[in-house]
Amino acid sequence: MIPIAYWRNRKLYTRLIGSRCKRCGAEYYPPVKVCKKCGSVDLEEKEMPKTGTIISYTKLTEPPVDFKDYSPIYLAMIRLDNGVTVLGQIADAESEEIRIGMRVMATIRKWTEDGQNGIIYYGYKFKII
């Protein structure tokens, strides 16, 4: 994790701020500067809905080095209620209980930390509702 990059994106990571095209209405997370549907550069900030549906998931037993203390990680692709798909962790889960089609809600959890005295990084995870 790069501390300044995290700071720059803190709003996105805590509130799921994406973008919406003012011309065609397409919505995006992560936010974009150019609309992929119509090519417009006239976009505004848009907060994503906090509920959605699991469209795929996996239990990851060998996460990357920044997350090595948090194994296993339950990772999912979530289709939010506005149709935007987000990648995120399922919080408080066991893989046995996760299913495609389950409803989830975004919540704020600890992602990782820079050692014992370093920064703690918080951001969205999804919990089953």
């Binding site: 990059a5 998931y57 990851l60 997350f67 990772l75 990648l87």
Partner: peptide
């Protein structure tokens, strides 16, 4: 994949492929 939006949530490269494989099987 993206440093800011894939790596930050703890995803590895293999996990992205696993998500697709589960989707395919389903």
């Amino acid at each position: 994949e993206s440093a800011d939006f894939t790596q930050v949530v703890g995803a590895s490269f293999i996990s992205l492929n696993a998500l697709l494989m589960r989707m395919y099987m389903n």
